[in-house]
Design a protein around this nucleic acid. Structure first.
Lengths: 355, 355
DNA sequence: TTGTATGCGTTATCAC
DNA sequence: GTGATAACGCATACAA
């Protein structure tokens, strides 16, 4: 009836701030001449109403610009409408894609994404998580989290968690990731078919599945005379690739091919290899994992295994939503497809050797 | 006293789920034999207590593992403890850095970051924002948002908003960004000093400040015989750079230097230029803006203007925090420093021309 | 189909 | 210093 939008209490006549406070369910109820319970049921759907009531409520909501307050709703339902995701390093395009995938699924489901970057942090991971926790309905976190964090997570029960990257850090937990052994095998076979015999792997042992990739790589050369060597870096970033390049390339065993735990390392290795005067791929082949977008734009373009970063984020989010919905038969682990992307940084070795 | 951690009500004896619900402020109050009001004041600091009460409360909180429920608090205080950030394309390293900067500041301030990627979306931007809105205390959004979104934002008053990227879309709004004209000027002078005369700019007119960079570029060549041409792409991504490369390079006026609105475009241009047989930088120089990390790893390495992406995120978040704190004398616009990063993709043109 | 009453966990106001 | 108590905005038994 009245044109005024806000409630009439609270000194409506005051002339200072004409700023109306947001309309509440009570305002709608009053305007529509029904009870708040009715409005609530209407808003949350799942029930039928008389045409008249429906029309009045719709009009009132429309007119008042009413939007339910998620905090108040959350207090009752225990749901926040948010999904949490904690990333190890947003600078890494692999994680960026992961976030993108999760973000899309969350948005489609009408949920928000609470984001945390564990970057650089030593211990604060737990603090980060604890801050996120009460504000989300479920979490997507790296399977590479410290044990203490995982313990806390499973004890602060009630909220589902999906781990990404590799198998869950402890049995009985949900996870999404690719088959890392198979990925390593895939890349190893590619190199083997090219005729490589001396392979060096630059791993990142802080990620458990670096070992799986390494094993896959070795298995690809089983029964051959190939010699494989293992290096390790403290962080899976381009700078470390650059730093370790000389050790790898000027090693006692000059490698015909260098495989890196991920593309960032590979990018650094590639760059430094060329700076050191190595011709890639003529003298040495270089490859990585993740298939980040920039692999296409370096010279030579980077051979990589696409481990479905964005799909991982999508599947993880979907899995989490299913968990939230109480889906009954949910596999503990979902595997994302991988695919070899052979580009120019891998080729036949200089001296093919004899079969 | 008792070892049991949870509250005793609610069928503690039931044997199904030993899962205790989270301790509330009432549990703490009871355990410490004080009122909830006292606990609340204690938790929120700012008042003195008797040694004994303090000890009892501390012990109770510790023992019960009490953490205040941000939703319940939010209902009263109107604050959520979250900052919202909406990004145009998380795939772009520029935005990634921005998020990183904002994320760090938010974490330091004990706040969470609610993240939304407007990627690809046509209109849903408004919907995204509306979903985020009630869950945050303030927002960091692109100055490139559609007018309707900006209007909505300023009408749904009460929550501070900081725009990033360039000047605020409407007067009176807060913003953080670099001086785009100066950045263009900086890069232009670099090219001028190298002796370039024929420049092509690949702009992205959907971003208002693409024009500023272009103007800066032109101003750098004021009073010279240089000829500048302007192209435009529908999206600031590498693929568009590749797509438009032939038009730019095989134009009636063969450019000595190509400047792109951002590094992604530059990367695409660089890659395609070489594919077309152009030698960079011998035949044509290429440069961009943003100084994304991958510029270092392409060949030749990319000259760019560092526009302080991460700093922008930091400053924006800090500015928002200040707004939230009701800081009195806050400038409407904060400028982030820029810096030319000259690398190998720019060099003297093939035929220097005479002064 | 609709309404009544209660409580979610917290902070703020005002007493004591 | 400390305590009662009334909100905050909403959803949900249960009653009608």
């Amino acid at each position: 009836m009245s044109k005024a939008v806000g409630p009439l209490s609270r000194g409506e006549a005051a002339d200072k701030p004409p700023r109306r406070r947001a309309a509440t369910i009570r305002d709608v109820a009053q305007a529509a001449a029904v009870s708040t319970a009715t409005v609530s049921k209407f808003v949350n759907g799942g029930q039928r109403f008389s045409r008249e009531v429906e029309a009045r409520i719709t009009a009132a909501i429309q007119q008042l610009g009413y939007r339910t307050n998620p905090l108040a709703r959350g207090m009752i339902t225990g749901r926040t409408g948010n999904l949490g995701i904690v990333i190890l390093d947003i600078r890494n395009p692999h994680f960026t894609s992961l976030v993108k995938g999760a973000s899309r699924v969350a948005a489609e489901a009408g949920m928000n994404l609470l984001f945390a970057d564990a970057a650089e942090s030593r211990e604060p991971e737990l603090a980060l998580l604890q801050a996120l926790f009460p504000q989300v309905d479920g979490l997507i976190v790296s399977a590479r989290m410290p044990g203490a964090v995982v313990d806390w997570l499973r004890e602060s029960a009630g909220k589902p968690v999906v781990f990404y990257g590799g198998p869950a850090p402890q049995p009985g937990l949900h996870s999404v990731g690719c088959d890392n052994h198979a990925s390593g095998l895939m890349l190893g076979r590619h190199l083997r078919e090219l005729g490589h015999r001396r392979i060096s792997y630059v791993g990142f042992s802080a990620a458990r599945w670096s070992e799986d990739r390494w094993q896959g790589l070795r298995d690809a050369f089983q029964g051959t005379q190939a010699s494989l060597r293992h290096f390790d870096v403290p962080a899976p970033v381009a700078e470390e690739g650059e730093r370790i390049a000389s050790s790898v390339l000027l090693d006692a065993q000059t490698p015909e091919a260098v495989v890196a735990y991920n593309d960032l390392l590979a990018l650094g290795l590639l760059s430094e290899a060329r700076a050191l005067g190595f011709r890639v791929p003529q003298q040495v082949s270089i490859a990585g994992f993740d298939n980040i977008a920039y692999g296409r734009y370096v010279t030579p373009s980077l051979t990589s295994v696409d481990i479905g970063s964005e799909a991982t984020g999508e599947v993880a989010a979907r899995h989490l939503l299913a968990l939230l919905a109480g889906e009954p038969n949910l596999a503990l682990h979902e595997t994302v497809a991988t695919r070899l992307v052979a580009r120019d940084s891998t080729a036949r070795p200089p001296d093919p050797g004899k079969p």
